[in-house]
Amino acid sequence: MDPSAPILFFDSGVGGLSVLGPTRALLPNAPIVYAADNAAFPYGTRSEQEIAARVPALLGRLVERFHPRLAVIACNTASTIALDHVRAALEIPVVGTVPAIKPAAELSLSRVIGVLGTEATVRQPYVDDLADRFASDCTVIRHGSPELVELAEAKLAGVAVAAEDVHRAVEAMLDHPRGHELDVVVLACTHFPLLADELSEALPNVTQVDGGPGIARRISSLTKGQAWPESAPDGIAVFTAPPPKQLVTSLAGFGLNTVVIL
């Protein structure tokens, strides 16, 4: 394995940074390419057919250009819809992102858990299967919130996020007949951990669970024994449309110092 071969992270926007962060903690010298399909953002409001066609095609172009050792679909919506298509199209390992329903069910004492994601993710049969397999004795409250995705993007671009906007975006979960018993919520969109503090205020005494740390461990396992550079090179951020200037500044905090428009 060429030590300079990067790990490729892919998302519709900046949500995948919540997966990149814990991965860097485990693999600090790993070369990183982070790709955001912001020209089609947000995925959660697009059709399954569009995502299933667009994601494998884009990842194919990215693999051809950057020659990664491994690709990470750091997006729940893209993973639940297009993961199998991507794996069929690429010849490198592909790690997906799925809602952390199993650990949420293991943590819940009230047996009422929430699945907070995009509209596309929460309606997927894949989520039905996870709930049936790992949370069959739980009431699972699902809620799709495109507003939270937009708020997370705005926050990283330097825009102040109002607490009342976050509360309004999740209040439907609390309005459920058993919403007052909710004790664990699955952040089933990689954007949402970027709003962890705001969500804690909107959902007090509710434990948040997301897949980022588990995905990082999976990446570390798949690359065990592979060579890495002696020090971390500058990461590359790839966008499919020009990003806001303030967002580019924020990306430097994640080690992404070079910006490319695909």
Rank of each mutant, 00 (worst) to 15 (best):
A202V: 07
E50A: 14
T139D: 12
A104R: 00
G179D: 05
V55H: 04
A71W: 01
I51H: 08
V19T: 08
D183V: 04
D37P: 03
A160D: 10
E164R: 04
I215W: 03
A35W: 00
G158Y: 12
L195D: 06
Q49W: 00
V209S: 07
C189T: 07
A131Q: 01
N38L: 11
V33P: 06
A89P: 03
N76Y: 05
S221T: 10
V209P: 08
P177E: 13
L194S: 01
S220E: 15
Q246E: 15
A202Y: 05
V33H: 00
T23N: 04
S47K: 11
A39D: 08
A154F: 07
N76V: 07
Q226N: 10
L203T: 00
E181H: 10
A100P: 11
V149T: 05
E150Y: 05
E150H: 11
I236T: 15
P204W: 10
A100H: 14
V63H: 01
P56K: 01
P243N: 12
A152G: 13
L182F: 04
V112P: 03
H85L: 10
L174K: 11
V112I: 12
V115M: 10
P244I: 08
N257M: 13
R61A: 13
P229T: 14
P31T: 13
V115Q: 01
R46K: 15
A154E: 11
A78S: 04
S18E: 03
V94N: 09
V33D: 06
V184F: 09
V33N: 02
A135Q: 09
I92A: 12
A162D: 14
A152K: 02
T118G: 09
K155A: 08
S4K: 11
A232I: 13
S12Q: 02
V184W: 05
S145F: 12
L83C: 04
F192I: 00
G16K: 14
P6T: 09
E106Q: 14
P177C: 14
S110W: 00
A120C: 14
P213W: 05
R87G: 05
S231E: 13
P93N: 01
A88R: 13
L256Y: 04
D132I: 07
L251M: 15
T258Q: 13
A135H: 08
R142F: 00
P99G: 01
P42D: 15
G117S: 11
P213F: 03
F41P: 02
A163G: 09
L17N: 05
D129P: 02
P229D: 10
A5L: 15
I101G: 07
F10H: 03
